[in-house]
Design a binder for these strands. Structure first.
Lengths: 208, 208
DNA sequence: ATTTTACCCGCATATTCATGCGGGGCCGGC
DNA sequence: GCCGGCCCCGCATGAATATGCGGGTAAAAT
């Protein structure tokens, strides 16, 4: 089965080289190439490709805006963003818009084809440099993390179970400890977090 | 310059094959291999490798817990998680703990070495399947947002009070309604959110 | 005009939670 | 050695929660 690929980029040179790459590669079929977002918005719904390679920095409407609109109407179409910059805003805007992958343009040809296949198969290929941005988004330390750090590993594990909504008895089973030990954790954790109820503890845990 | 790599995995077979791979690869130097998190916690601070390959599913202390502690003390050390599962919780736990990359164990050898180098150079290699989870985290504004929207204003207000840790009686006072009405809200809200406990409701509210 | 929908109130009961008081054992450091 | 931190276990009790069953009214939709 051929993967139908469309291409949106304002740079004629890039477009033609990508076009050549894709049309020559076995298993891929180029169904259209467009120089701007407006044209893509009109034409892509007609051919409904499997994967769209989308340049971020289009003149006029930005690439991610185009993705947002197309993705809303055609959720099955996958979008793979291409950019020359490692710009954070563009990256997060694209992800929010529903893009599935994000590659730097200097990605090698073979890797690009592989990425298209990845996207088509439900993956999200991403250049390591860009992935790092995303990863950092998660590890940004929160304000209340300090008190969380004072918990012992077992206590943290317990707190995690607590946040998952399990009853004491269930937590005891999952952690292979007795219900009374669980109750013991409740006290120490509450004390360390300065809370007096399960809800408060969970809130502090999720936010911290 | 050699990249110093440490290895944490409880599976002897995997450990030895990875060990062989790394020690034979030019540019890499294996500085230690450990069968569990506890040993790693003790030994890794001594050798301070550049990159640690960490299995997620360790017996006893989980891999991401180990990362959390080591990363806090030694921020320069990079962690590359290895797992057989595409489990969402493990993934996000690891990212929050400070892991930089996350690969499936079935990743090809060449790609693994490349990933180690990526991590060392500040990237965040990630298997496309796993990256998709991360990407979805952004595009899905919230899985529960839809159900949250089905709440009436009063119910939302109530849920907010619930998330603040107030008891039913306190909520009744604050909202100037009867305690029995509060109980009524409990039921309708739980039903709409498909939960069976205060904690689950609050979690869904905070995340959605 | 009838039905639906949303909202408010009430009672009863089983379960869960919060917290008081104890007791063990293991390990690492002073 | 002894102490302090961490982990584990136990009993008891009152408060809070979850959920069953009801009943009303007023506005919106059909």
């Amino acid at each position: 089965m051929q993967i139908k690929v469309a291409l949106v980029d304002d740079d004629e040179g890039i477009r033609s080289s990508l076009s050549l790459l894709i049309s020559r590669a076995p298993g891929f079929k180029l169904t259209g190439e467009y120089a701007n977002a407006e044209t893509a918005l009109k034409e892509i719904p007609k051919t409904l490709p499997d994967v769209v390679l989308m340049d971020i920095n289009l003149p006029g409407m930005k690439g991610y805006e185009c993705v947002r609109q197309l993705k809303a109407e055609h959720p099955a179409v996958q979008f793979l963003m291409l950019t020359v910059y490692e710009d954070s805003d563009s990256l997060f805007n694209s992800l929010r818009a529903g893009a599935s992958g994000y590659l730097l343009k200097r990605t090698a040809s073979a890797r690009l084809l592989e990425a298209i296949r990845d996207v088509f198969e439900g993956g999200s290929p991403m250049s390591p440099q860009l992935a790092r941005r995303v990863v950092q988004f998660f590890s940004q330390p929160s304000p209340g993390a300090a008190s969380l750090a004072r918990l012992t590993p077992a206590e943290r594990e317990f707190l995690d179970q607590l946040a998952n909504g399990y009853a004491y008895k269930e937590i005891a089973d999952r952690m292979k400890i007795s219900i009374d030990t669980v109750r013991s954790y409740v006290r120490t954790v509450y004390e360390k977090l300065h809370v007096h109820s399960r809800t408060e503890a969970v809130v502090k845990y999720l936010r911290g």
